[in-house]
Amino acid sequence: MNVIFCMMLLAGVVAAAISGGLNEAQAALLSGGTEAVSFCLSMAGAYAFFGGLLGVLRESGVTAEAARMMRAPMQRLFCFAPGEEAALDDICVNLSADLLGMGGAATPAGLSAMRKMAAAHAPGEPPSEAMLLFLTLNMCSVQLLPTTMIALRAAAGARNPADITLPTLTATGVSCAAAVLLCKFMSAGRKRRV
């Protein structure tokens, strides 16, 4: 992150110096923060609304129920190495929280799942099949309702801010399916080489 930020700033200023646009650069630097504040304010209402809905779902126990329902299919999907099943509960909480768009609840459970799976292996061992699959799934977002994008589109004055829901869901589904297939393919290849 650090590198990206520094590169962006340096590239911008250097490009401005070369093309003689230092005036524009100065204006952009001074207005960027203001833009961020008004942008956040324009999204605040929709964000609070989605936060509220998710709060109701969480306190109704829907999240816990979703995690419980995912246990059996997840057990089959992950092909755990011995000792790794200890992470199953955390994996279910992580994936169902992701699905419902509760990033705040998903990350701690996901990190704890990774730690539990790592504990089943000797330190310094390369990541296992289940760990790589779990990591890859977390690197493709699985979300039922793209709340941030809906809030962003509402702030930008879209006619129907939620009309990207189905395409987004399909795109996520396709990319997750591709990730799972590739992971299974790669691990099969790895086994054959050993």
């Binding site: 930020f5 962006m8 700033l9 590239a11 911008g12 200023v13 490009a15 401005a16 093309s19 646009g21 524009e24 650069a25 204006a27 952009a28 630097l29 207005s31 960027g32 923060g33 833009e35 961020a36 504040v37 942008f39 956040c40």
Partner: peptide, 17 residues
């Protein structure tokens, strides 16, 4: 984070990068 990133993208946009 948005302040940092919007500043950086505004800079890149205005300077033509």
């Amino acid at each position: 984070y948005l302040c940092a990133m919007l500043t950086a993208t505004a800079l890149l946009r205005e300077t033509g990068v």
